[in-house]
Design a protein around this nucleic acid. Structure first.
Lengths: 163, 163
DNA sequence: TATTGTTATACTCTATAACTATA
DNA sequence: TATAGTTATAGAGTATAACAATA
């Protein structure tokens, strides 16, 4: 397995910049991890928004569905903490999921301060549709990078997240 | 060169989650590019904020300094477009850089609608200090991933940004 | 006293419409 | 009419303080 390590992939200018003038020199930015990281995240999240528009799910909502579905019975703080979402901000996420009948909060018997959260059958059904969309998104990235490189990228990003 | 492709790097729970309970199963998220991408960006941008606090520069401000410094005489729209920043939002960035005496707008003679932008000597000096901080940041990532893997990561991210 | 869920709030980032002055 | 810069504004996303209920 080989990786091209020369920075110039013809990405010196935006695809949607619009201006027909000479491309700018962004070599001072494209080589420093943080900048390509931001640009890649913008592209992937735009792709996510397109694919999940029909399901009306934001990244935060989808990640909550996955986390709750794979960890039923946990409380809000645990789910929010694992997702890196502040507890106060997760309240609105749960409010919306509950309003749409996708998830439920039930006052825990053991500790009546906490809400055990779980998916409804509608939530599980929507999550299943989301996983199909997500698989298509990964397939598109596989087509762009190759499956091995995509897997290596995920490993690198998870390690980078420990910085 | 080899890359570990197994997903589990012990990243199933947040370092700062605080809760001493069982770690949650986030395997449904950590394998799908978008989620590790977001977490990595959060970590790298927090690192950036720490390193650049003394220089009082946000990522957007630093990227603007680099882009202007490497492309003197271009106009605002070209710089903003290349950075993926909406033109209206770039006005405030330039306002602040100009207020701090780091950059200047000069009405172009050829087309008096446009502002040619350039760094002042103070801007060039601060940019030089920023590049030193940035090099230290890259060195920290090198220490975490290894230099070859870091370079491969940058290449992958630039390609992913074309999705 | 500490913790869970919650409210309120503020601050940043981002996106769009519309204005002005130039072309 | 079209474009560069600008203003105003609205919507996300994210962060902290403080409160009520419970432990």
């Amino acid at each position: 397995m080989t990786f091209r390590t020369d920075a110039d992939l013809g990405l010196v200018e935006e695809p949607d910049a619009g201006s027909p003038s000479d491309p700018l020199d962004l070599s001072g930015l494209t080589s420093i991890v943080g900048y390509p990281l931001r640009r890649a995240q913008m592209a992937v999240f735009e792709d996510f928004a397109r694919r999940f528009a029909a399901l009306d799910l934001t990244p935060a909502q989808y990640s909550a569905l996955v986390a709750i579905g794979d960890n039923p019975g946990r409380n809000q703080s645990e789910i929010a903490g694992a997702l890196g979402i502040q507890r106060p901000n997760f309240v609105a996420v749960m409010d919306e999921l509950e309003r749409r009948g996708l998830a439920e909060r039930t006052r825990s018997g053991a500790d009546r301060r906490s809400n055990a959260v779980a998916l409804t059958s509608a939530g599980r059904a929507l999550l299943a549709r989301g996983r199909v969309e997500q698989a298509a998104s990964e397939a598109a990235i596989d087509a762009l990078l190759g499956p091995e490189t995509r897997a290596a990228l995920v490993t690198m990003l998870l390690r980078l997240a420990t910085l």
